[in-house]
Design a protein around this nucleic acid. Structure first.
Lengths: 227, 227, 227, 227
DNA sequence: AATGAATGAGTTTTCATTCAT
DNA sequence: TATGAATGAAAACTCATTCAT
């Protein structure tokens, strides 16, 4: 597992113009990374409005102006943080998926890594709260990143359904979203009652086998209630 | 030295009789309700900080001062909105629970009503995002209200487990939170792909029976993964 | 000595139109007086901005609207309070002056009454602080009232000078203002160190005889220093 | 679990050497002074509440934010103005006192400088009006500053009494306050009738020798009036 | 006439962003 | 390029005044 990924792979979001070589003062190495790390830390633990650019700069031991040299706005910085985070998470999952054998295992792997990742990043989902506040370009990138994560789970489910391991009567996209919803729910409201490990086990247990002792007769047609 | 007598300390000088009702300008009917409705609408669709008291007032066709006449602060208004909402939801659920026969039905009822309720109140949970922003008294009321909802589901689960209908190897509190997490997940990210009805069916299907075609061998002991 | 003077003698400041007899509901007796007394009390102890119309109304056991029925604005109410106060003080002084025999005694009487009067009305002078904030009509009345007080002392001094008891080399107006300045100074800054009685004695001692043990040689020509 | 290493905690990675001087935008020269001057001017002629930070900023040709960059609050700005003023006045007095020979001269010097100083700072004392409005720390500094001024005069009086030049039957603190009261009185109400020079002469004449042509028989025991 | 509900203009302060070295 | 000083738009809240009975 890659323990330290360069924060952002895709520089199209960067405020700096295409590097002109050998002109003027060279950029201080890692300065962008330091800012991004500082912002990641702060955005992970506080709400968007509670994070001041001053804090980010101070925490990165960097001048405030430098933050704006590298990111056009606070929103863009936030976007970069989240995108980098999702990238990192996806890479972790991809790595871990390599060692799995069964569909069940793959599903559990994705859920486990997602929960572990967000457990210490309580505010990470927050950015998706009010997407209207974001410029459309960032908004699209956000959705894209999130959808890649959903897509990974969705794809595993689809393959499982095809393979006959996973029930085929439900929309895989919705199911994947439901799974991530459980992750988010316990991430936010389960912290006082459970360790992340217990939270993961609970989610996987529900997700795979459900809570009913006996399966619904109507199943797997999904006509489960109001019968 | 001021030898003047305090002018009026005894009300016998007053021309008005003891009855003090119906004096002054009568309260504009439903003014408080209009403010609350306006706030409900705005808080439901926007983030706390994105809702301006000016907007609330304008939207309610009411002076800004009136908002502060009826609610001491923005936080208090927010609290009133949410508490009223939770009260309404709980009442709905309690009513609906009366007509249920089985545990499965009761669970489905709670989930269905919760999802329906929040489907048009996307930002309703936002209030619990940054509890530090709220005065402790409100904070407690919020928690209490939310916990009542979680508690209803939790209690049904506990009864089901006792009764042998629901698996007993999981913490009911966590399971209830996971269910509400799914509700929230599809509420937020399932809107484009599903009707609320389909969302409800999907959640209940997963929650009761899980996604696996065959149940895990280790089940129902819950020690399913990663040894 | 008159212990309870009707608050305002001159009704031209009143907001109520000329009394139309036998039309509509009769005015509640003493309502205006109650408001004025309440305002006197509050303005005497707090700064203008710290006194809320709500406080005045509540303290008078009167509706807020009634305050505005009787006084067009907060400033006007303040003006009425101060004018009434000055009236009262002047009447007291006039009464007391009747029993005096010497110029010296008359001066002492004025100073003593002024200090006693303001000792419990710390904020009374405040209204003269920023006269620009007042409508010109009130402003003129203020000045007039104050000048009447200054005038009383000034007149006694002038008579004394004529009579040969008081030195004639100083402008009586300035001297009178200086005396009132001492009153104000000890009223504000002497409270913690002296009783009003001691304050009065100190002021009179200085005012009549000065602080020097031996009188200035240049005196009474007033060329007292830089010699 | 977050295995990422905290990005930068040691500054050895920094490109900038240890010397951290002269970095960033240099402070606009005299900007703080401009704000202070502007505030001095406005606070001198208007009441605290009548002075808006917007005015201070505009008057100083400075952004409003800059005012808050240099002073944490309106109160602090006020405090700075007054403290600076008192400091200036005291320094003037101390300098001038160096050239004096007699007690009489010293007293005159203090009075003259005080009056001259406040003549163009009409509202300077306003700050002490409602001490409760000020944070306790500032409040204490205010009192301290003012007391230093009173103390200077008080001390001269005490020395004079010891030396036999000044009557010893009065409390020097009260006498000093009375003198400053005269200064304040003529500063406020004598402007239309006298130049500052005449005002000073009048005050000193009264203060040293009193207004009576013949000294009170009871003097200097001070038990002059009303038995 | 008397009342108290309703109103909205006015002010401090914060903090993202710009700018001068 | 990097920095931190300078800026001003934005928003919650108060309270004098108005208004409907």
């Amino acid at each position: 597992m890659n323990t330290r990924t360069p924060a952002v792979m895709d520089s199209s979001i960067s405020a700096t113009p295409a590097r002109r070589r050998n002109r003027g003062r060279p950029a201080t190495p890692f300065l962008r990374e330091r800012i991004l790390d500082s912002a990641s830390l702060l955005f992970a633990e506080r709400d968007f409005d509670q994070v001041l650019i001053d804090d980010v700069a101070a925490n990165a031991h960097v001048g405030k102006g430098s933050v704006y040299r590298h990111f056009n706005s606070k929103e863009e910085l936030y976007a970069a943080v989240v995108i980098a985070g999702f990238d990192q998470l996806q890479e972790q999952i991809r790595d871990a998926l390599g060692g799995t054998r069964s569909v069940r295992d793959r599903i559990a792997t994705i859920i486990r890594h997602a929960l572990q990742f967000f457990w210490n990043r309580r505010q990470f989902f927050a950015l998706l709260r009010d997407p209207k506040a974001l410029p459309p370009a960032q908004e699209r990138r956000f959705r894209t990143q999130r959808e890649k994560l959903v897509g990974m789970l969705s794809e595993v489910l689809r393959a499982g359904a095809e393979h006959g391991t996973i029930r085929a009567d439900l929309d895989t996209r919705l199911v994947a979203e439901a799974a991530l919803g459980m992750v988010r729910g316990l991430n936010r409201y389960g912290r006082e009652f459970a360790t992340p490990e217990i939270a993961v086990d609970t989610i996987i247990a529900i997700f795979m086998d459900g809570c009913a002792v006996e399966r619904s007769a109507a199943d797997p047609n999904g006509e489960t209630f109001e019968g």
